[in-house]
Design a protein around this nucleic acid. Sequence first.
DNA 1: CTGAATCCTCTAAGATACTG
DNA 2: CAGTATCTTAGAGGATTCAG
Lengths: 132, 132
Amino acid sequence: MSGTHSDVPSVLAHELPRPVPLDELAACPVGEVFRRVGDKWSMLLMILLGHRPYRFNELHRAVEGISQRMLTRTLRGLENDGLVRREVFPTVPPGVEYSLTPLGRSLLEPLSALADWAVRHGSALGRAPEPR
Amino acid sequence: MSGTHSDVPSVLAHELPRPVPLDELAACPVGEVFRRVGDKWSMLLMILLGHRPYRFNELHRAVEGISQRMLTRTLRGLENDGLVRREVFPTVPPGVEYSLTPLGRSLLEPLSALADWAVRHGSALGRAPEPR
DNA sequence: CTGAATCCTCTAAGATACTG
DNA sequence: CAGTATCTTAGAGGATTCAG
């Protein structure tokens, strides 16, 4: 990474005058983020957890539509990414509380910019892509 | 950014105190945007097209790793979403030029916020999720 | 209550090969 | 050059069942 810090924000401002050897683009950090939280449920859970900590079944009921399997897998993924923290309370019955890490909370901010855009221009995206 | 302090700005700041009937969450605009451009190639192409118009094979070479099929499908999707414009020049041989619509360009901005975050905190996401 | 383990389905995506 | 048409595979995601 060359430290060419133009005042225009971030990677998108780089000049890409020629065919890019993928070294630049595949390493595109936006892509990485999308790969992590771009799945069906991740950011949904993150938005929920952005408000307050939730317990497992609490999340299960809140999202209602997610399977237990995917809830577990998604939470594990977010935990491995350092976005979500998992805290176990050895009570009876056992309780597990999920919350956002500072990193996760920080991700919520740029995500809100995206949400903001979606609210304003989202209607233009309304039509689904034609099947087949 | 209407960044007040402890609260998350914009849409994400909605109160979600109770089990959400999915009417709220499924309609989550962030989710919709992710569904559209959250796939493997969309934002990659959008970033490229953010710099200049490209022709089909030009894109094919630039991304190098994408199949013709996916390039076509992704471009069609972006076109249907109103993010990319397709212009045909009836020359010999035929030339087709792809470029970003104003809507597409506007999406690039919040995307840059995300890229910005990724550049700063992306390293924390470095470790891949465990392979099963 | 919080998961893990199985099984199954459906779609995204790659590889070719063929056309206007 | 700019696609379309098939075929095939890998993985995401759901339903269900079992366990600590």
